[in-house]
């Protein structure tokens, strides 16, 4: 297979994954499930598109595509995690079909705790640096 055929295959697979992710975003019942479908499929799909561009062009564009892939892979799970946590803490209810919820107890304890989360985080950051 020539390099253009490889690039074509990779990019079309990537677009297919992107489409599946966005279909999941529309079809699934609550924000956490949507986040699951969206993050996983769209991250991998975009990585496939970037890989296709790297194969197609080579040189400077390929290097930038690889760096961009690393950024997307590192940032998207962190973003998803932050959005899921804030959604839960801002009180978005999970879908009624949710079978277990171990997280509720932790969040309720935090709401009534005297020390806010901020102090814990800054204390940790300071011990890491010291």
């Amino acid at each position: 297979m020539s390099s253009e055929a490889w690039a074509e295959t990779l990019i079309l697979i990537g677009v297919l994954f992107d489409l599946l992710g966005t279909i999941g975003l529309v079809r699934l019942p609550d924000v956490y499930n949507r986040l699951q479908a969206g993050t996983k499929c769209v991250t991998l799909g975009t990585c496939f598109i970037l890989a296709g561009a790297a194969v197609w062009a080579g040189g400077a564009l390929a290097m930038k595509a690889v760096i961009c892939m690393a950024f997307v892979l590192l940032t998207s799970p962190v973003g998803a995690h932050a959005l899921a946590r804030s959604a839960y803490r801002s009180g978005v209810a999970a879908w009624e079909g949710t079978v277990v919820d171990d997280y509720r107890g932790h969040v309720e304890r935090l709401m009534h705790a005297p020390t806010p989360m901020k102090d814990e985080a800054t204390a940790l950051a300071q011990t890491e640096i010291a």
């Binding site: 599946l20 699934l28 479908a37 079909g97």
Partner: peptide, 24 residues
């Protein structure tokens, strides 16, 4: 890749067979 195929199956299946939960 396996995760994506798994999500694809759940999304495209007509009844969206999910059984979500928060675990520790």
């Amino acid at each position: 890749v396996r995760a994506n195929l798994d999500v694809a199956y759940r999304v495209l299946h007509p009844d969206t067979p999910i059984r979500p939960g928060f675990i520790r």
